[in-house]
Computed example of a mutant assay.
Amino acid sequence: MSTVTLNGITVGYDDTGGDMPLLLVHGHPFDRTMWRPQLALGYRMIAPDLRGYGESTVVPGKTTFDVFAADLAALLDHLDVERAVLVGLSMGGQIVLEFLRLHADRVQALVLADTSPRGETPEGVEYRTELADRLLREGSADYIEHALPKMVVPGCAAEEHVRRMMTGAPVEGSAAALRGRAERPDYVDLLAQAGLPTLIVVGDRDEYTPVAEAQFMHGLAKGSRLAVIAGAAHLPNLERPTEFNATLQSFVDEL
């Protein structure tokens, strides 16, 4: 576990393993500990806390995806990593696509888990804006009770870990990310034209980004690989780590 000052903030991160660098980008409202089951795979696993989460600085207001991408690029610079396999889950997958838009030459391959490349809808803008306001006004307890059963299959071994991450997420950081996410652009054409090795992963019980959305991405990204993880919801890397890790390892070993 390390920290570094980048772009005027402190970023907490893990940097473990071997030669092939993988940059692991967590979702909302989590932190880098969501990648704990993947850190021992033997590659160079770089897992930062996004600004506003975990050990990284909380910046109130609004954090747009280009800001998250700039932080990630600065971290790679600090670690002397020119190119990496980018792995992102949920919001993290969308941030990975923003990184691709801005820094395509630094992306060796893509792993997109339980995410969507589509731009935000008017209904989504309203929902995320209202949720950001509610988190600041009321805290996160009600949101967690509503969202947790959709994040993971109830009763799974990862449930309490996910609850701890959600409870520990600073509401100002979460609200800033929600406001930024409400402004995200559409990445459909970007993904279709990327021409990169791409792995798409989804839990077969995911309600937020269901299998049909993963199949849509699989159709967009020519030559991509699709893996549907049975018995998992929105966080298959935590709910079914053995299956997720085997899928990821098989993909990376072929690069």
Rank of each mutant, 00 (worst) to 15 (best):
T64D: 08
D66L: 05
R83G: 12
L76D: 01
A47K: 01
R83F: 12
L41S: 12
V96T: 15
M45K: 00
G54Y: 01
L72T: 03
Y53S: 13
S90C: 13
R51H: 05
G42A: 13
V67E: 15
P60D: 08
Q94G: 12
L72G: 02
W35E: 11
W35P: 12
S56Y: 02
I46S: 00
T63Q: 11
P60R: 08
A40H: 15
M45C: 14
A70F: 03
A69L: 09
V59Q: 11
F68P: 07
P60S: 10
G52L: 10
G92R: 02
G54R: 00
A84Q: 07
Q38N: 10
P37Y: 11
L97P: 09
V85N: 06
R32V: 01
R44H: 02
R32W: 01
I95H: 04
D66S: 14
E55H: 09
T64N: 03
V87W: 08
A73M: 12
A70Q: 14
G92E: 04
V96C: 14
I95A: 11
M91N: 08
G88C: 11
V81Y: 07
D80C: 09
E82W: 01
I46K: 00
R83P: 12
L39P: 03
L41H: 09
H78C: 10
R51N: 04
V96H: 06
Y43N: 09
Q38K: 04
W35T: 10
F68C: 10
T63D: 04
L72Q: 06
V87G: 09
G88S: 11
R36C: 03
A40C: 13
L41N: 13
D71L: 06
L50T: 10
G52T: 11
F68T: 06
P60K: 10
F68S: 06
L50F: 08
T64R: 14
R83V: 13
T33M: 06
D80R: 13
A74S: 15
L50P: 04
P60Q: 09
F65N: 07
L86A: 09
V58M: 03
R36D: 15
D71T: 08
L79Y: 10
L97A: 08
D31G: 03
M45N: 07
T64V: 14
Q94T: 14
V96W: 05
V67N: 13
R32H: 13
L72H: 03
L97V: 11
S90M: 06
